[in-house]
Computed example of a mutant assay.
Amino acid sequence: MIAKIDFEIDSLNAMKKYPENLYYKGNIELLESKKISVVGSRKPNQYARNITQELCSKLALRGIKIVSGGAIGIDAIAHKSAGAANTIMVAGTGLDVRYPAVNKNLIQEIENKGLVLSQFAKGEPSRRYNFPLRNELIVALSDILIVAYADLDSGTMRSVEYALKMEKEIYVFPHRLGESEGSSQLLKEGKAKLIYNIDEFIEQFGTREKNEVDEDEFLLFCKTNPTYEEAMKKDATKLFEYELLGKVEVKNSKVYIVSL
């Protein structure tokens, strides 16, 4: 069910213009939690995928809600790794339009367990000029913006511009030369801080809760829905074992965790 938010969200006053309307599906109480926004490329390298998965999974264990945009790439990895119940997705369409279609199952799960927000009325399709507005809202919702992977001239760097204007803390991962050059530029200009160690970074966010998935490195890896080939390379023995035990399943050449 699509509903309209009828109260003010203080952090959104940092936007150039407070949204005229804000619609939602899901658990509106997530807005009361500590939130961190995670953005990045639609085509990150495997290193960025892995480090994003680890960070978001561990932040979720500290009660942090991950805010992102539901796109393919870093957005989807962030949502999946945190778990739908720990996720706030900001859509660039009306909430009756699950975009991108390839992520429709993920978006539906977030609607059911987490929270999906949109500034756009029912029926609004994906339009190019909607996404800067979506990105500004993603940044405004949190005090911290994490840039997982960014090319120099990219939509991710536009999100960084919003964060700088709003005086938000920006963090990036260490990357090799020639990769994620947007991150390197931010560091060079002193506009971002570097996450040297994920465990040290998340220590500031309270105590850790444990569950089977997050205590098992292979199951944690499978939360990102790796390809069958990637899972085989990670740990072929556990893949076969966990298939037999019903902990994971393979569909369309990808590995998925079965609800435990």
Rank of each mutant, 00 (worst) to 15 (best):
Y99P: 02
S57E: 13
G69A: 03
K223E: 08
Y129S: 05
L164K: 12
Q204H: 14
G63V: 02
K80A: 07
E29Y: 11
R208L: 15
S142A: 12
T156S: 05
E179V: 01
S41V: 10
L30A: 09
C222H: 10
I195T: 02
A121D: 14
E215L: 15
G69K: 01
Y162A: 11
G246M: 09
F221Y: 14
D199G: 03
G73K: 00
N21K: 15
I110Y: 12
N105Q: 14
S11I: 10
R49L: 10
G206V: 08
A121M: 11
S154Q: 06
L30K: 11
L59R: 04
Y162G: 03
A48K: 04
N130S: 09
D153C: 06
L194D: 00
L244G: 00
V102F: 10
N105I: 08
E111Q: 13
K34F: 08
I170R: 02
E32D: 14
I77H: 02
C222K: 04
L219W: 11
S142G: 03
K254V: 09
G114M: 06
A76F: 01
F7V: 10
K191N: 10
L177P: 09
L22T: 05
Y18Q: 06
F218G: 10
P44Y: 00
K193M: 00
A48P: 11
L239M: 15
R128H: 08
K251C: 00
A85G: 10
K165Q: 15
Y162D: 11
I195L: 03
E20H: 13
I28K: 07
L187Y: 09
L31V: 11
I51Y: 01
K233V: 12
P132T: 05
D199V: 02
D6E: 15
E229C: 01
D75R: 01
G94M: 12
T237E: 14
E209L: 11
G190H: 07
I74R: 00
G182H: 00
L220M: 14
M89T: 11
E109L: 12
G63A: 04
V90N: 12
R134M: 05
E229S: 07
A101R: 13
G92S: 15
A101Y: 14
Q204V: 08
V160Q: 03
G155I: 05
A60S: 15
P174N: 11
F120Q: 06
Y18L: 07
N211E: 12
R128M: 06
Y228E: 13
E189T: 01
G94D: 13
L245T: 02
L59S: 04
A82G: 12
E167H: 13
D214M: 15
P174R: 08
E189C: 05
R176Y: 10
Q46W: 06
L239K: 04
S126M: 09
L55M: 14
T227S: 15
R208A: 10
L141T: 04
V147A: 00
K238I: 02
E241H: 07
Q53D: 12
E209M: 09
L141K: 07
K165L: 14
E167V: 06
L59A: 07
R127T: 06
A76Q: 07
M157V: 04
S184D: 01
I66T: 05
N135K: 04
G40W: 03
N103P: 06
F7W: 13
I74C: 01
H79P: 02
E217I: 10
I257R: 15
G94L: 12
I28Y: 10
A76T: 05
K165V: 10
L244R: 08
I170Y: 03
F131K: 04
